[in-house]
């Protein structure tokens, strides 16, 4: 198995200028560490030949990078206009009840983080919920129980 350092070096070779590998490198570091901890940022920086501060500056610009710990699973409910118009808030509240956390929080067992996100680009199939980045379309509050069960069953 190759190390993060080596994988980042490979990514850098894909681009005419190595700095372009910053986003993919941060994604790799996040996958490896679960979130972009200071340690993860240091490792990414080492691979990229950038400073940890640079990596932190870039990472903090993008919503998909987590600079605080998150659960093993991510439930992201789109609450932008199109989804909200057809009841995204009710879907969100169903998740809150089911998981016992509020948006932005992680279940006590560290399994699931619930977030609201901006438009996921599935507006016509609202409400969109991304489960570990896989979209579920047309989600209704009534579907939420089964979704959470499925998620928890998935190791």
């Amino acid at each position: 198995m190759s190390t993060l350092y080596e994988e980042i070096r490979e990514l850098m070779a894909v681009y005419p200028e190595p700095r372009s590998a910053t986003l993919p490198a941060l994604r790799l570091a996040q996958e490896k560490h679960g979130w972009l901890s200071p340690e993860a940022l240091r490792e990414a920086a080492e691979g990229l030949g950038e400073t940890p501060a640079y990596c932190m500056a870039v990472a903090s610009f993008y919503d998909m990078f987590h600079l605080a710990p998150v659960g093993r699973h991510l439930v992201e409910v789109c609450t932008n206009v199109s989804c909200a118009l057809v009841g995204a808030q009710q879907v969100l509240e169903a998740f809150e009840r089911e998981l016992g956390v509020r948006p932005g929080e992680t279940t006590a067992d560290g399994e699931v983080t619930l977030r609201t996100v901006e438009c996921l680009g599935g507006c016509g199939w609202a409400t969109i919920v991304a489960l570990d980045h896989r979209y579920r379309t047309h989600v209704q509050p009534a579907d939420v129980g089964a979704i959470v069960e499925e998620l928890r069953a998935d190791g």
Binding site: H66, V86, Q89, P103, G104, T116
Partner: peptide, 17 residues
């Protein structure tokens, strides 16, 4: 109104204190 009290990401500061 379906938009009543909708929680927007900007109100949730988990990753950007």
């Amino acid at each position: 109104s379906p938009l009543d009290g909708v929680v927007a990401p900007v109100n949730q500061h988990t990753q950007s204190p």
